[in-house]
Amino acid sequence: MNWVGHYNYWVVIFLMMSGFYVVISRGNMIKKLLGLNIFSTSVFLLYISMGKIHGGTAPILTDNPNQVYSNPLPHVLILTAIVVGVATTAVGLALVVRIQERYGTIEEDEIRAKDDSL
């Protein structure tokens, strides 16, 4: 098995786990959203790596029938997923702004303390 040749998958796994760790361990809501973004970006890389073919060029129709080209479908799919990711981040940030307005803080432990004191 070629360990080094699959280095982009190792990058994917590293990014995925570090993003996930940030989401779980951080109490700051903006940092959590950053972690979430890293987490989902790693999946984008996973899809893009799948579509790549060694020696393949961009999928453009040419006269040469033997032209090797990368699979464009995962790339297109990930365009959609990027849009979804942007929308999620937007909704998340909007919520954080509203939380800051209503609570005066975006640290989870402080918010919990304020909720419990009522």
């Binding site: 979430l36 987490f39 989902s40 899809y47 799948m50 997923a81 919520l95 939380i99 209503r102 918010i111």
Partner: peptide, 23 residues
């Protein structure tokens, strides 16, 4: 607001897992 935020974080993790599986 905090309930929605919590749901957003957990829901996005769930959806991303689904995306990995489909991939």
């Amino acid at each position: 607001l905090t309930a929605a935020y919590q749901y957003l974080v957990m829901g996005t993790i769930g959806a991303t897992f689904l995306l990995i599986g489909i991939g």
